[in-house]
């Protein structure tokens, strides 16, 4: 029994490089490209909200010496 109903489909225009990146992500994660894009949407949605609420997104290098703030559009 399917719990999630997906009533919409989307035509997405991508460049060769963008498609290649999506292919690679899907292969690395063992997921379809649709699943990767849905996950990207969730991630973007949750980070966007946190930033709108005043949070900062910071990436820390493994050696913890350098930190860089990520700015979202």
């Amino acid at each position: 029994m399917k719990i999630t109903k997906r009533d919409f489909s989307l035509v997405l225009n991508l460049s060769k490089n963008e498609m290649s990146a999506l292919d690679r992500l899907a292969e690395n994660k063992g997921q379809t490209k649709s699943a990767v894009l849905r996950q990207a949407l969730r991630l973007y949605e949750s980070i966007d909200l946190r930033i709108a609420q005043g949070a900062r997104l910071v990436l820390e290098e493994p050696d913890k010496k350098e930190k860089a703030e990520v700015l979202l559009l």
Binding site: M1, K2, I3, T4, G30, Q31, T32, A35, R38, Q39
Partner: peptide, 13 residues
């Protein structure tokens, strides 16, 4: 079980 089913549907194994 519903949570697990959704995980499978979302390709999260």
């Amino acid at each position: 079980g519903i949570a697990v089913s959704i995980s499978l549907e979302e390709e999260m194994d």
